[in-house]
Design a protein around this nucleic acid. Structure first.
Length: 272
DNA sequence: ATGGTGGAGAATCCA
């Protein structure tokens, strides 16, 4: 008995239902967390998702951009939507499964879409970068999240965190030190967020920090396989109580080469 | 130093 959680920045859920189906057939998750759904809740393809075997659907969407959604084979005992930085941005949803599953305890899954931060890595010059840092600070200080990490149940943080923290999380560490997603100030903020749980970076239990590991390849390159210029922007963190149960991981790199791909690929983590 | 591509949704804005 096990439980698999998958996270994927889908970059528009409505135009990629076919590859959502394909990824589900490959990964067979119990829970799928999507980011960048780019879909208002009242326009969400609920029936298509139910037909894929996910009767329980939690939405936090908005028109045009951002948006997160979590689908589950098991019912939700609780759904919570965080609002950060005084904005109405749809960048978080948390669901709690009761203890009637393989892990035997209530499980809360936080699904995040952290602001990308624009192009200039200076909060004085670039309000988007300032927003990214402020968002991370607010999440780090969020009492509900810390309580989940330290609570009696299990907890997971997944999502597009838009930061590649390790040297091996980017194709060229030195070259990307000044590129938003890998700058020291962001990496420090992400580290503070991770330490606030504390949360365990379970992906790196399967691929050691000495080895490169990517989940995103830019659209702005004609061939994503050329020189493998990727970054690890998507993450799975587990509470300390849950981390030892992580038993398998798949980064579905093939998905970057599918028809009409997202620029991110799905990451599936099995527990138990 | 720049531009490269892709989605939303109606001109750019965002990634």
């Amino acid at each position: 008995m096990s439980l698999t959680v998958c996270t994927w920045n889908i970059n528009s859920v409505r135009i990629r239902l076919d590859i959502v189906r394909a990824a589900l057939e490959r990964l067979r998750p119990d829970v799928l967390c999507l980011q960048e759904t780019k879909c208002q809740d009242d326009k969400f393809p609920l029936n298509a998702i139910r037909d894929l075997g996910f009767p329980h659907i939690a939405l936090n969407g908005q028109k045009g951009w951002h948006g997160v959604a979590t689908f589950s084979k098991r019912p939700f005992a609780r759904i919570e939507k965080g609002a950060f930085c005084g904005k109405g941005d749809a960048r978080h949803i948390a669901v709690t499964l009761d203890g009637a599953h393989a892990l035997g305890k209530p499980l809360t899954i936080h699904n995040f879409y952290v602001p990308a931060g624009g192009d200039i890595p200076d909060p004085e010059l670039n309000p988007k970068f300032a927003h990214k840092l402020a968002f991370l600070d607010e999440v780090t200080a969020w009492p509900a999240l810390k309580a989940d990490a330290a609570g009696d149940g299990h907890a997971i943080v997944v999502g597009d965190l838009n930061i590649a923290p390790l040297e091996t999380d980017v194709w060229n560490h030195k070259q990307l030190l000044t590129v938003v997603s890998h700058t020291p100030v962001e990496v420090e903020r992400l580290g503070a967020f991770q330490a606030s749980g504390p949360w365990v970076d379970v992906m790196r239990r399967f691929v050691p920090p000495q080895e490169k590991l990517f989940t995103w390849w830019s659209y702005r390159s004609p061939d994503y396989t050329a020189n493998d210029r990727g970054r690890r922007l998507d993450h799975v963190w587990a509470s300390e109580s849950l981390a030892p149960s992580a038993s398998a991981m798949t980064v579905l790199k093939d998905a970057r080469g599918w028809d009409k791909p997202s620029d991110h690929v799905p990451v599936a983590m099995t527990f138990g």
